[in-house]
């Protein structure tokens, strides 16, 4: 969807430019051309980020994998129950574990997603950012090119909350760092960290480069539900042992865990 919107955006420029040609108005052509060209470049960048061609997105191959997905669901739901039960047993120690992980963590990467926008959690994330930096930890934000629902969605939200722009990092700049990161905090992101993108052939996200959150030492996920995200693919990340799931409204769960 972000790619379609970016393409439509450029098309409105193209439409303006073409109409400008028809009425012999060079100014309209120029302005339309700027919008069209900028939009097309952005579209191209995002297509590259998803590792897919523009035509395959436009024709809508995305939905092909749906049938396959449904058949997997029963198994996954079952596995999820198991996870929940296990989690319930560990419940008491979990809070202590989280505390220990946070205290020990030196380098922290925060991954925001559409859920952060939905929960309006950017201000609490800012509070979290301040608290962690004050404790002397290195905090970075990892922004996937198609995180959210429109180009630059996350950047805008984080900038709105006054988070310094130079602590935001693009996919290519930060992806190699995950293997030496102590703690990844996921706030409402799903598809962009789903390792299934590397393995689940035929799904909409197959072949899309992801943020390698699964390589980090510990992962705390603040998501509302464990349901598949926008792309409709179960996130295999949830099944890893080093992952701590905090389900619920990100605003509440973050302030509960970090006390901000």
């Amino acid at each position: 969807m972000p790619i379609t919107i970016s393409l439509l955006n450029s098309l409105s420029g193209v439409a303006g430019a073409v109409t400008g040609l028809a009425i012999y108005d060079p100014v309209l052509v120029a302005v339309g051309g700027i919008v069209g060209a900028a939009g097309l470049i952005l579209t191209q960048v995002m297509c590259k980020a998803m590792n897919r061609s523009l035509t395959s997105i436009l024709i809508g191959k995305t939905a092909v994998a749906y049938g396959k997905n449904d058949s997997d669901k029963a198994g996954v739901a079952f596995a999820e129950n198991d996870i929940n039960r296990e989690k319930a047993i560990k419940q008491e120690s979990e809070e202590e574990k989280i505390k220990r992980i946070i205290e020990e963590a030196k380098s922290i990467v925060i991954i925001p997603g559409y859920g952060m926008a939905l929960a309006q959690a950017q201000y609490i994330v800012k509070g979290l950012y301040e608290k962690l930096t004050e404790e002397g930890k290195e905090v970075k934000f990892a922004i996937h090119p198609v995180a959210g629902r429109m180009p630059g969605h996350m950047n805008v939200l984080l900038a709105e909350a006054d988070i310094p722009y130079d602590s935001l990092f693009e996919l290519d700049d930060i992806n190699d760092e995950f293997s030496c990161t102590d703690l990844v905090i996921v706030v409402g992101a799903n598809d962009v960290i789903n390792p299934a993108a590397n393995t689940a052939e035929g799904t909409p996200i197959y072949g899309m480069p992801i943020l390698n959150a699964h390589l980090a030492k510990n992962i705390i996920i603040f998501n509302k539900v464990t349901n598949p995200g926008y792309a409709g693919v179960q996130n295999t990340l949830y099944e890893l042992d080093k992952v701590i799931l905090k389900l619920g409204d990100a605003k509440d769960t973050i302030s509960e865990v970090f006390g901000v």
Partner: peptide, 12 residues
Amino acid sequence: NGLGGGASGLVA
């Protein structure tokens, strides 16, 4: 954005 496209369409 859509309205911009629509405006161009109307001019056409």
